[in-house]
């Protein structure tokens, strides 16, 4: 049935199979490349639409990258039809979640008010920590319309203004940590557009180290 193996035909068979399969894959890769790239861009844009009011530009063309606390995050700029700044969508994260890392996208208006927050990825416990997701629990809604200058990004137990999810203090604290980090990134970036923000950098920095100080 199967052919007798000789060194020559074994080598030839393996070469032929790998060659044909590479060619096929290269073809499929070409075909799907555009669609995959489009999906990536759409995912980012859909996220930004969720956290910022209506904008006219294409924020995924206006990305600035920043290296923060050991990782690179992206900041997306949204403007209206006249090019005026509406707000920034800031990627942020924390490594202090119960299940490890939590990634968020936080939308800030030009005056520093939090417009909305979307959870991009997390591995918190289903039924407990996963309530940080706005689709599961109103916890993250309380941040809407708050300005971190006056709204202290810590759970009440630690002396802040955030109502923690009951029985889920670790996840709630981690969420505050991520939002405080987002605000710090936002303030540093905003100095480019509005020099007044320079005076807020110190406070925003302190807030990040404070958000999870009591552990």
């Amino acid at each position: 049935m199967a052919k007798v193996s000789s060194f020559k035909n074994m080598l030839l068979t393996l070469l032929a199979t790998t060659f044909i399969s590479s060619a096929l894959l290269a073809g499929v890769h070409q075909l799907t490349k555009k669609a995959i790239e489009k999906v990536e861009v759409e995912k980012i844009n859909a996220g930004i639409k969720k956290v910022l009011p209506e904008f006219a530009n294409n924020p995924s063309d206006n990305i600035s990258k920043k290296f923060v606390d050991g990782d690179t995050v992206a900041i997306y700029k949204a403007t209206d039809s006249e090019g005026k700044l509406i707000g920034l969508a800031v990627q942020t994260f924390t490594n202090k979640g119960y299940g490890g890392r939590i990634s968020l996208l936080v939308g800030f208006l030009a005056d520093g008010t939090i417009n909305n927050i979307d959870v991009i990825a997390h591995s918190e416990t289903p039924g407990l920590g996963d309530k940080i997701d706005p689709r599961k629990h109103p916890f993250s809604i309380q941040f809407q319309g708050k300005n971190p200058d006056t709204f202290k990004l810590q759970v009440r137990k630690d002396g802040g203004d955030v109502d923690a999810i009951s029985a889920t203090t670790v996840s709630s604290r981690a969420f505050c940590d991520a939002v405080a980090r987002a605000y710090k990134i936002f303030v540093e970036e905003m100095v480019k557009y509005n020099p007044n923000f320079a005076s807020k950098i110190q406070a925003a920095n302190d807030a990040v180290s404070g958000a999870t100080k009591i552990n």
């Binding site: 049935m1 199967a2 193996s5 074994m10």
Partner: peptide, 24 residues
């Protein structure tokens, strides 16, 4: 293609074929 494949490289060839479709 089973009949064209020498017996000793049967499994590696199958794995390449499977991996190709998985990537597709």
């Amino acid at each position: 293609i089973a009949k064209q494949i020498p017996d000793k490289v049967r499994i590696p060839s199958y794995v390449v074929i499977i991996a190709t479709f998985v990537t597709v």
